[in-house]
Amino acid sequence: MSDHQNHHEEQHEENHIVSPKIYAVIAVALLLCTALTVAASYVEMGPWNAVVALAIAVFKATLVVLFFMHIKYSSKLMKLTVGAGLFTFLALVGMSMSDYISRAWGSF
């Protein structure tokens, strides 16, 4: 539905070739993040351990999606597609959890 607004962009981005330099930088960043996440798991942060681990994982995944998978250089439609996938995934997890979280709640 959105592709009419940025048709121009689409044409322009047709053959965007990401340079190896960017790939290398991203790869190094990913490796560093891996080290970071391992290190972080050895630090006592209580419930924040999981949050930090997930945050790093999300960051890494974002890097991969944006650069390795070229979404940064792709049309809005592609970005929307990725967003739709994420949305449905969160719908599955979140709406299922709405049951599990509130099962133990008391009744009126």
């Binding site: 996440t37 798991s41 998978m69």
Partner: peptide
């Protein structure tokens, strides 16, 4: 790359629970 991303999530979720 997608397979890579799956692993990026699997690794902390499966390996790194409360290592401390």
């Amino acid at each position: 790359h997608f397979v890579d991303i799956v692993w990026i999530f699997l690794f902390p979720l499966l390996y790194l629970i409360s290592r401390h």
